[in-house]
Design a protein around this nucleic acid. Structure first.
Length: 353
DNA sequence: GCCGTCACGGTTGAA
DNA sequence: GATTCAACCGTGACG
C-alpha cells in the first residue's frame, strides 16, 4: 500500500522495480524470449536490469510450467477439507475408530476421494478428527446405541464450495484446478500454482485490451484464451453467474487494477514491449531514473528496460522482428498465433509500424 | 564470472 | 473496517 506506487526502487543494475510486486509481464516475457534466443541468464539480467535471481526464477518457472505469469499473490488457498472429505473421514472413523490419520489419508487417496494435490495433510485430518469428529469415536457407539437421529454432515468448516478440484494436469504434471464450469486448461497454459493468480489478470499485458476487444467482438474470442485469463484470477472462483470475462477482469474494483495494467492500456495503443531490444540510441546503463517501472513498462518499456546497445554474445543484435515472433510465442508454450496476437496486440501494432 | 538458492522486506487478498 | 495470516514478489548475498 505505498502511497505512491508510481515510483519504484532501483536495484543494483539500475533497473526499477516495485518491492513486493511482480515484474511486468513485458519484462517477464522478455526474459524468456532472450533465454530462448540462447542468451545467458547473466546477460539477460544485465540487459533488462533485473536481478539474476529473478531471471533464474522466472526461467525456472517457465521451464517448469510453461507460463511466464507470476503466481497468485495474497488470498488463501482453497480448502482441501471439503465437506465431502470430512464426510469420508467421518465414515472411515466410524468404520474403524482406531484408524490413524495417516491411514485415513491413504484411504482418501486410494478411494479417489482426494488426489495427491488436494489430499489433506495428516495434521489436517487429525484436526478434523479432533475438532469435528473427535467425539465420534466415543459417541458413535454411544449414539448408535442410542439410535439418535443422525445429523447430516455439517459443513462446519468455513469451506467455500466454489473451490473444486477437477484436477487437470498441468504442464509439469502438477494439477491445476479448473473452476467449475470451465474446461481444463492445457498443461502448457496452466499456472504453476494450484490456484490462479489474481493480480496477474491485470498484470498481463493488454488484458483489458483483450477483454474489451472481446466485448466488442465477442464472436471471435477463443474460449481457451478466455479460460486462461479467467483461471488466472482468483475472483473467478466466486460463484457468480457472471461471465468469466466479467468475473475474471472487469469484476475487479477500479482500485484493484494494477498500475501496469492500466498503463498497458496505452493511449497510443503502442506499448513497446519488444522495441527495447534494439535501442542503440540509449546509452549503456543510463543512470536510474525515479520512474515507475509500471509506468515505464507500458508506454516506455524500451526506455526503462533496455538501455544499452546490448548484443548477445553471438554479436548479432536482437532483431525486432525476431523478438516479436518469439515474444508472441512465449507467453505460453504452445499458444497459437491467434491467441498471441490477441494477447499481445502491441506486438502486432508494433510490427505494423 | 555464472548460477542456484535463500533470507529479507515488501505487497496482496481471503478469512 | 481493521487485523491476521499465508501466499506471492524481486532483490541481494552467499556458496
Amino acid at each position: 500500500m505505498t502511497p505512491e506506487p508510481a515510483f519504484g526502487e532501483v536495484n543494483q543494475l539500475g533497473g526499477v522495480f516495485v518491492n513486493g510486486r511482480p515484474l511486468p509481464n513485458a519484462i517477464r516475457l522478455r526474459i524468456v524470449e532472450l533465454a530462448q534466443l540462447g542468451i545467458r541468464p547473466c546477460d539477460i539480467s544485465r540487459q533488462l536490469r533485473v536481478s539474476h535471481g529473478c531471471v533464474s526464477k522466472i526461467l525456472a518457472r517457465y521451464n517448469e510450467t510453461g507460463s511466464i505469469l507470476p503466481g497468485a499473490i495474497g488470498g488463501s488457498k482453497p480448502r482441501v477439507t471439503t465437506p465431502s472429505v470430512v464426510k469420508h473421514i467421518r465414515t472411515y472413523k466410524q468404520r474403524d475408530p482406531g484408524i490413524f490419520a495417516w491411514e485415513i489419508r491413504d484411504r482418501l487417496l486410494a478411494d479417489g476421494v482426494c488426489d495427491k494435490f488436494n489430499l489433506p495433510s495428516v495434521s489436517s485430518i487429525s484436526r478434523i478428527l479432533r475438532n469435528k469428529i473427535g467425539n465420534l469415536s466415543q459417541q458413535s457407539q454411544y449414539e448408535s446405541s442410542k439410535q439418535s437421529s443422525h445429523q447430516p454432515p455439517q459443513p462446519t468448516l468455513p469451506y467455500n464450495h466454489i473451490y473444486s478440484y477437477p484436477t487437470p494436469i498441468g504442464a509439469s504434471g502438477t494439477k491445476v484446478p479448473t473452476p467449475p464450469g470451465m474446461h481444463s486448461l492445457p498443461g502448457h497454459m496452466a499456472m504453476h500454482r494450484i490456484w490462479p493468480s489474481s493480480h496477474s489478470v491485470t498484470d498481463i499485458l493488454g488484458i483489458r485490451s483483450i477483454t474489451e476487444q472481446q466485448i466488442s467482438d465477442s464472436s471471435s474470442f477463443p474460449s481457451a484464451k478466455l479460460e486462461e485469463w479467467s483461471v488466472i484470477n482468483r475472483t473467478h472462483f466466486l460463484p457468480s453467474a457472471s461471465s468469466p470475462l466479467v468475473n475474471g477482469v472487469q469484476h475487479k474494483s477500479p482500485h484493484s487494477i494494477e498500475p501496469e495494467a492500466k498503463c498497458t492500456q496505452m493511449q497510443s495503443g503502442l506499448p513497446t514491449v519488444n522495441s527495447y531490444v534494439t535501442a542503440p540510441s540509449i546509452p549503456a546503463y543510463p543512470p536510474p531514473t525515479p520512474v515507475s517501472p509500471y509506468m515505464g513498462y507500458s508506454a516506455t518499456t524500451s526506455a526503462y528496460v533496455t538501455g544499452p546497445t546490448w548484443q548477445p554474445p553471438s554479436g548479432s543484435a536482437l532483431s525486432h522482428h525476431s523478438c516479436d515472433n518469439i515474444a508472441s510465442s512465449l507467453a505460453f508454450k504452445g499458444m497459437t498465433a491467434h491467441h498471441r496476437d490477441t494477447l499481445y496486440p502491441h506486438t502486432v501494432s508494433a510490427s505494423a509500424l
